[in-house]
Computed example of a mutant assay.
Amino acid sequence: MNRKLLLSILFLFAVKMSAQEDKSRFSLGFNYGFGSEFNNRNYTFTNHFYKIQLYYKLKQTKHFQYQILVQPEINFAEHQLLNFYFVKPETPDYEQKRAQYTQLKDIREYVVNCGFLVRKPISEICSFYILGSIGPMITDTETERMSKGFAFADVLAVGFSLNYHKIQFDICPNIRHVSNGGLSSTNSGYNTRNIEFGVSYSL
């Protein structure tokens, strides 16, 4: 095989690979985050969590990019009731529950959120985005604010991304609400402010 033919094949292969990269719609990433409740006198709630992020690019326009994503997550939280009067005397066994709920508790939450993301590029390597997501969740601990078992997690976030070739780095402040949607009588839920750091790779 002569050099010209070999160079031609290599050039065509590079062009094909470049076209495939441009057409890539999927990205896979990993996020770590932490946060706490909005300041209040009734309870404490601190958390840290890990997420796998699977992105799919729906559409690219001149000014915006639209993506959907799936986010399996495990959340490690600590919670404690501070105001034992939150458990009212009409609650069955209220004194026992006050003693139980005022103990510091470790909570595990297992979540699969589905989200929609609108991204605004500001340069070739930087972009801002807005993200909203919701998904089912299982929590392993009963508290005065929410029953053990099935619930939902809702997240509203803004973020900043920095791209380096096929790798993307993210920082993402967000607000998270957890409740069971009225499926149980104990449904006060938790509201937390969080920040996430992530990295993803375009497949």
Rank of each mutant, 00 (worst) to 15 (best):
M17A: 05
Y110N: 12
I130G: 13
I130N: 08
G182N: 02
N180G: 07
V158P: 07
I122W: 04
K57Q: 09
K57Y: 00
P136I: 06
D22F: 07
Y56K: 04
Q103H: 11
V158E: 02
G159E: 03
F38E: 15
Y129R: 10
L183Y: 09
N187I: 05
L5S: 10
C114L: 15
E37D: 14
T44S: 12
K105R: 10
K148E: 15
F64S: 06
Q96D: 13
L81Q: 06
K120F: 15
N75S: 07
E37N: 15
A14Q: 10
R98H: 08
E90L: 04
N75Y: 01
Q60K: 10
K23T: 01
D154N: 14
N113F: 03
V178N: 02
V155P: 01
Y110R: 12
I138E: 11
E95M: 15
A14H: 08
G115F: 14
H63A: 09
K62P: 07
S36C: 06
V158W: 06
L117Y: 00
R193H: 12
F116A: 08
Y50C: 02
S161V: 02
R108D: 14
G189S: 05
Q53R: 14
F64H: 08
E37I: 11
N163I: 01
T102Q: 11
S161Q: 09
Q20P: 07
A157W: 03
Y85R: 10
V111P: 04
T141Y: 01
Y43T: 07
S127F: 05
G29R: 02
Q67F: 11
I68R: 01
E109D: 11
K105N: 02
M137P: 11
Y110C: 05
I130F: 12
S8G: 06
F45D: 08
F128E: 03
N174I: 01
R193N: 10
Y66H: 04
R145N: 15
M137S: 14
F30M: 11
F34P: 06
N174E: 09
I138Y: 14
F13W: 08
N113D: 13
F26Y: 13
K51N: 04
L156I: 15
A157N: 13
G115I: 14
V158L: 12
I125V: 14
S18P: 02
F128A: 06
F152H: 07
F64R: 03
I122L: 10
S202Q: 14
Q71H: 09
F45I: 11
L7M: 11
Q67P: 05
E142S: 13
K23R: 06
N194S: 07
E95K: 11
Y66T: 02
G33R: 02
I122E: 05
N180S: 08
V111G: 01
F152E: 04
S8R: 07
R145L: 14
F13R: 06
F169M: 01
E124L: 10
T186C: 04
F150T: 09
Q71C: 05
T139R: 05
I122K: 04
P121T: 02
E142G: 13
E90H: 13
I125N: 12
L69M: 14
I134K: 06
F160P: 07
I9D: 03
